[in-house]
């Protein structure tokens, strides 16, 4: 994986952690400001994922177009995926 793809994936991991963490908090603690922040993250994440999937590999099976990309690109535990 190229350095720029690697950097993009790291960005997705970082934003995913923000989404997961703020999502957990919002499950039990409604707060309009935090909800607006959450929605911004979701939109930003979708844009990053689209960029990554176009250039590198599908993140989900439904993003594997053509579907052969699902079984051609490395699996996350392969060293080539680093």
């Amino acid at each position: 994986m190229t350095d720029s793809c690697q950097a993009l994936l790291q960005k997705i991991r970082a934003i995913d952690l923000q989404i997961i963490d703020s999502g957990l908090y919002l499950n039990a603690n409604p707060c309009p400001e935090a909800e607006a922040f959450y929605e911004t993250l979701i939109r930003e994440r979708a844009a990053l994922a689209e960029q990554y999937e176009q250039n590198t590999a599908p993140l989900t099976k439904s993003a594997a177009i053509p579907v052969s990309r699902w079984t051609e690109t490395p699996w996350p535990w392969e060293r080539e995926a680093d």
């Binding site: 099976k61 490395p74 699996w75």
Partner: peptide, 16 residues
């Protein structure tokens, strides 16, 4: 079992 499968197609099947 996926981790000891040496073929990406087989890993895909086990994952799905």
């Amino acid at each position: 079992q996926r981790f000891s499968m040496p073929d990406r197609r087989i890993i895909g099947m086990f994952t799905d």
